[in-house]
Write a protein that binds this DNA or RNA. Structure first.
Length: 834
RNA sequence: GCCCGAGUGGCGGAAUUGGUAGACGCAACGGACUUAAAAUCCGUUGAGGUUUUUCCUCGUGCCAGUUCGAUUCUGGCCUCGGGCACCA
């Protein structure tokens, strides 16, 4: 025999090193078959190359790997690619400290990460890998920027933006979490700067509407988060004229309650509103300036908090209520925000909590215009914010408020002073960054021609290598003369380049398209390949990207659809958010010092144990706590399988060609064969239909337990060799996606030439799995009183008869009358007795 | 405040269509093997009662409801987690 030195004990490290090399050499992880097979595009969110992968990465990639392996072996043409989201701040920050250039550290980290992914046995074809920070990739990110620019979806504008002082750059709204920087957790402040934006707001409605196309495959939770973020609200826009002016001055407001228009008793402008200056009367100027100053000192979070005291002051001017002609005073107040709506509101204290609090504080009249029952109250104790009947509203009095909203708006529309309007909380995506390690924005500023896009033929605009990238608040590229100074593509004159780089979320907004044709030289992606592979059938990754990456990728796809470059409107048919891995109830983190790294585990127990435990520790979509004894358990199970198989190696080799007749099996032999087929069904369905890897593994454990029972009962001499061979080989194939190394090793010990990972997935035989007897439960008044092992498919009458014969059932119906009998075939008989 | 989830033994969790609650694993305990230990193998393990290889009662966050029957469906509440939040 080839292997005389077969190991008696399971030594993962020795095995795994060997197979990594061999699989590499043989390239067995190109899972593409041919275009006749049904395609399947399985994708896990690609990592930022931080060095060693953490446990969250491991969970992400192991889950995808197992599913991809099973699908490929069920005859799919699989695309299962990997790459690196390689631009970004950490490399640059590290460079500032260590002096190692971001490109060098990034490539070194990619090397580490790639090695770790291979070590964990993830089935990726690394020849199709992409790296977003390399010019052959970011050239197309730049090209896409220019496409957006040409479509009028990219514009540079001055706006109050989020500024992170620690990162020395602006941030998109989505990157500000609770007023803090998503990256470094420091407070974000508002600055007015001229920045590049992508007009995602133009797609707000479609991002909502197209949820219909993916709601089957996305968890409702994620769609709800996005819906919340987009924040659609329906209402009306109403125009108010400023009173007593020689020239007409008109201020529009957005309201969701046009039905309360008769209850407007004051009007508020955001303190930063451009008209504040103009309408403030001299007598009030000093006061207004003072209040503005106080408000400007409040942080965004402070000002945004509902508990913060409302402050404001009168400006001296009035607006005219367009419906009843009443003059109402214009105030400024901290609770009105410039960013939302028009930065101005009509205040209805009777029916808005905030306006009520403000009016009470400053003694502004409160007028009830909505009543729950149509009656007018003397004095409202609190704002009434629900629907009701309109009161004190001239022609509309008596109208239900829901109807009133429509009627009032229609009325305003006829008079040309208002209209139906929809507002979104979603803001345009700020995409420029004042940092070095990103793709340069391909724009040139010429004194004569203005803003000029870099021609496609001149792409990529290469990121210069030798740059002093210490943060100064300006992009480091601004100090790189050879980069900045260029000639205008339009007139040939002297010009300067844009020196900001792009948000790295742009790189990840289209990478799934690049994977379809990763080596394409002439275009971002080959349409033929994209049309074939896209959309991604199953996307896997952390839910923390719900309002960042996932919303941007959906937006990009819609823009490409409008540009006629792709034929689908949604990039990811199904999305599975895996849960986080905690330790001691807390999220693992370096700063907390509660880290368990995958390498610790695979160095100690092997990758198969790591993989098995990751899958077994809980449902893939829920947060789980890491347990060291759980890892031991996973390792114990693998060792148990190892011993079972190794103990039968000789026997299996002997009986390889032997057939066995399943109809002749009896007793425990029949039981265990039945269990095998039940396990095939369960494992297949758990993995492919439900992503329930934990229960798939418990099914395999049950099978192994039963196989041990058979070992014990049969004894060496009397074992059914052909049956043992069949059980063992099928068990290994079922286990191989989860424990690829060990199963491969055992497979080869049996003198198989081919890799176990190329063996077709076992086929479930319904006949073999069928139970011939079932445990039926006998109940009286819904309580279990007895059980019996009965032939499956027993008739109702027979089942009822057997149940009635039970001593315990008799005991409980004695002296009572059976008023009803429920029989559920193969399950239970229930007597209702009174 | 609004919108989503979740709540089951000592612990992680299972119960897929309303039909045996607690699969599988961890931990614990008992036994076998061993000079001994580790490893391994075999058992026991929701709580309480009991006539202790028997059977009974209770039990899936709490309170109701629907049903012959509810971890599962409905209504209300509590707790925890997540998202949004002076959003007009």
């Amino acid at each position: 025999m080839e292997k005389s030195n077969q190991q008696k004990t399971y030594d993962a490290t020795a095995i795994e090193k060997k197979w990594i090399e061999r699989w590499n050499r043989e390239g067995i992880y190109n899972l593409k078959s041919n275009k006749k097979d049904p395609k399947y595009y399985m994708l896990e969110m690609f990592p930022y190359p931080s060095g060693e992968p953490h446990m969250g990465h491991a969970r992400n990639y192991v889950i995808g790997d197992v599913a991809a392996r099973v699908l490929a072996r069920r005859g799919h043409n699989m695309l299962h690619p990997i790459g690196f989201d390689a631009f970004g701040l950490p490399a640059e920050n590290a460079a500032i400290k260590s002096g190692i250039h971001p490109r060098e550290s990034t490539l070194a980290n990619i090397e580490k990460m790639r090695a770790a992914l291979k070590r964990m046995g993830i089935a990726y074809d690394f020849s199709d890998e992409i790296i977003t920070s390399e010019p052959d990739y970011y050239r197309w990110t730049q090209w896409l920027f220019l496409l957006f620019y040409r479509m009028g979806l990219a514009e540079k504008k001055e706006a109050p933006v989020n500024w992170c002082n620690s990162c020395q750059t602006v941030l998109a709204n989505e990157q500000v979490i609770g007023g803090k920087c998503e990256r470094c957790d420091s407070m974000v402040i508002k600055k007015v700067l001229s920045q590049w934006f992508f007009k995602i707001t133009k797609y707000a409605q479609r991002l909502l509407d197209d949820m219909e196309l993916i709601q089957e495959g996305w968890p409702e939770k994620v769609l709800a988060i996005q819906r919340n973020w987009i924040g659609r609200s329906e209402g009306a826009c109403v125009h108010f004229k400023v009173a007593d002016r020689s020239k007409d001055l008109d201020i529009a407001v957005f309201t969701t309650r046009p039905d309360t228009l008769y209850g407007v008793t004051f009007f508020i402008l955001a303190p930063e509103h451009e008209l504040v200056e103009e309408i403030t009367k001299p007598a009030y100027r000093q006061n207004v300036e003072q209040v503005k100053k106080i408000i400007s000192q409040q942080s965004d979070v402070e000002r945004g908090a509902a508990e913060t005291e409302k402050i404001g002051c009168f400006t001296g001017s009035y607006v005219v209520n367009p419906l009843n002609g009443e003059k109402v005073p214009i105030w400024i107040a901290n609770y009105v925000l410039l960013e939302y709506g028009t930065g101005a509101i009509m205040a209805v204290p009777a029916h808005d909590e905030r306006d009520f609090a403000f009016a009470s504080k400053y003694d502004i009249p409160i007028r009830q215009v909505i009543s729950p029952d149509g009656k007018v109250e003397d004095k409202l104790k609190a704002a009434y914010c629900q629907e009701g009947i309109m009161v004190n509203s001239d022609p509309f009095t008596g109208t239900p408020s829901t109807e009133g909203k429509k009627k009032v708006t229609e009325h305003l529309q006829e008079k040309g002073i208002g209209a139906f309007e929809v507002n979104f909380k979603l803001k345009d995506w700020l995409i420029s960054r004042q940092r070095y390690w990103g793709a340069p924005i391909p724009i040139i500023y010429c004194q004569k021609c203005g803003t000029v896009p870099v021609p496609d033929s001149a792409l990529p605009v290469k990121l210069p290598y030798d740059v002093d990238f210490r943060p100064t608040g300006l992009s480091p590229l601004a100090y790189c003369d050879q980069f900045v100074h260029t000639t205008c593509p339009a007139c040939g004159g002297k010009a300067k380049r844009e020196t900001d780089t792009m948000d790295t979320f742009l790189c990840s907004s289209w990478y799934f398209l690049r994977y379809c044709s990763p080596h394409e030289k002439e275009q971002a992606f080959a349409p033929k390949e994209a049309d074939y592979w896209m959309p991604v059938d199953q996307y896997i990754g952390g839910i923390e990207h719900a309002t960042m990456h996932l919303i941007y990728a959906r937006f990009f796809t819609k823009v490409l659809y409008d540009a006629g470059l792709v034929k689908f409107r949604e990039p990811f048919t199904k999305y599975f958010p895996h849960g986080v891995v905690n330790l001691g109830g807390k999220r693992m983190s370096k700063s907390r010092g509660n880290l368990v790294s995958p390498s610790e585990i695979y160095n100690r127990y092997g990758s198969d144990t790591l993989r098995l435990y990751i899958l077994f520790m809980g449902p893939a979509d829920s947060a789980v706590d890491w347990s060291d004894s759980g890892v031991e358990g996973a390792n114990r199970f693998l060792a148990r399988v190892w011993r079972l198989v190794v103990g039968n190696i000789g026997l299996i080799a002997e009986s390889r060609k032997g057939q066995f007749d399943q109809t002749e099996l009896e007793g425990l032999e029949k039981e265990v064969y039945k269990k095998l087929h039940q396990t095939i069904k369960k494992v297949t369905e758990d993995i492919l239909e439900r992503f329930n890897f934990n229960t798939a593994i418990s099914a395999l454990m049950e099978l192994v337990n039963l196989m041990y029972k058979y070992e014990e009962q049969a004894g060496q001499g009397e074992k059914n060799k052909a049956l043992v061979a069949e059980l063992t080989q099928k068990l290994l194939v079922l286990l191989s996606p989860m424990a690829p190394f060990m199963t491969e090793e055992l497979w080869h010990m049996m003198d198989h030439g081919q890799s176990i990972h190329q063996i077709p997935w076992p086929v479930f035989d319904q006949n073999a799995a069928r139970e011939e007897t079932v445990t039926m439960v006998f109940q009286v008044n819904g309580k279990v009183r007895d059980k019996a092992e009965l032939t499956a498919g027993l008739s109702r009458q027979e089942a009822e008869k057997t149940a009635l014969a039970s001593e315990n059932v008799k005991k409980f119906i004695e002296g009572k009358k059976i008023v009803k009998t429920i029989v559920v075939p193969n399950k239970l008989v229930n007597f209702v007795a009174r």
